[in-house]
Write a protein that binds this DNA or RNA. Structure first.
Length: 302
DNA sequence: TAGATTTGACCCTC
DNA sequence: GAGGGTCAAATCTA
């Protein structure tokens, strides 16, 4: 059967753990959202400067964790192709975040990945030989839960926009080799192709942000360097929705922080379509229960 | 002042 | 030589 995914024991275990983690986070998010702010606890009371509700912040952090979990899962899936005891068969993994109900051509994405992997095998450029690569194409740039530092920008031939080069912020202190390239490929509606290289071996500083017993960390949320660096709130958006990006010179590249997904004007952008092999899993981030984790488990033969 | 971003130069491969 | 990736000095920002 073409679409059966065979994974090594270790890879399967890691993927299973990531999916379970994401599932747990989704459940927690559901609880937070249905809590409906009835506690009347707000950051304003604690910090005195931000009126954002506590439940919204918690929900935002859960979305971040879910996204991170899914990102890790996808990297694991893709990397499993290289395990000797055997690769993931069928299609590579592609995520599409649908903003305008747009779908990414899976076949096209698959071909791109094949080309990309072939190039790396040949060692045709200076890029470090990082085994795990995968691409996602999104109409907006969404935080994947990791911190990135931009180290270059390049005008690409035949491309209308610059390509931006990022590597993990923890490259030096934790020797994390994860990198990504972001290329805007389309003007209207906007479309960004993000190519990830390698795993994150770092431990994100954001991990403990909302640990239940450490509210002091929670209160520092909006001062977080990550937010300052990559996620600036766009001005209020009129409807119909314009692209959720802010301009940086010629090449607009601003990611949307998960917290922003909870702004009413951004909610429509939370419609995720996740592809595992040929199966499309669609979910609204605000409806975590709708994410078909069970189907994913079935698909992987867990 | 430290860390992030920008940008031109350099390197490598085809 | 062209094209893409990376480096590193200059600049920016909080």
């Amino acid at each position: 059967m073409e679409n059966v995914v065979w994974l090594s024991t270790n890879g399967k275990k890691a993927i299973e753990e990531e999916l379970i983690r994401g599932h747990d986070m989704a459940n927690q998010l559901l609880e937070v959202l249905t809590f409906d702010d009835k506690s009347n606890i707000s950051i304003r009371e604690v910090k005195g400067s931000n009126s954002q509700s506590l439940s919204t912040l918690i929900a935002g952090d859960l979305v971040r964790k879910i996204l991170k979990s899914l990102t890790n899962t996808l990297l694991l899936l893709n990397n499993n192709k290289e395990f000797n005891d055997v690769p993931v068969s069928g299609r590579d993994v592609s995520i599409s975040n649908s903003y305008h109900k747009m779908e990414v051509d899976l076949d096209g994405a698959y071909k791109k990945l094949k080309i990309l992997n072939t190039k790396q095998q040949k060692g045709s450029n200076k890029r470090k030989s990082i085994s795990a690569t995968w691409e996602k194409t999104t109409p907006i740039l969404i935080d994947d839960g990791h911190t990135w530092r931009k180290y270059g920008q390049k005008r690409i031939t035949k491309a209308k926009y610059y390509r931006s080069y990022y590597r993990c912020t923890h490259m030096n202190d934790q020797h994390c080799e994860a990198m990504k390239h972001v290329q805007r490929t389309q003007e209207n509606p906007p479309l960004y192709t993000t190519t990830y290289y390698g795993y994150h071996t770092c431990k994100s500083n954001l991990e403990p942000i909302l640990s239940s017993d450490d509210s002091s960390v929670l209160l520092s949320f909006d001062n977080n360097v990550l937010i300052k660096q990559e996620y600036q709130l766009p001005p209020p958006l009129p409807l119909p929705l314009p692209p959720l990006v802010a301009s940086i010179k010629e090449d607009p590249l601003k990611e949307i922080h998960p917290n922003q997904l909870f702004l009413s004007e951004n909610i429509l952008s939370c419609n995720f379509e996740v592809y595992f092999d040929n199966v499309k899993h669609t979910t609204m981030l605000l409806s975590p229960e709708s994410f078909e984790f069970e189907n994913v488990y079935d698909q992987f033969g867990f």
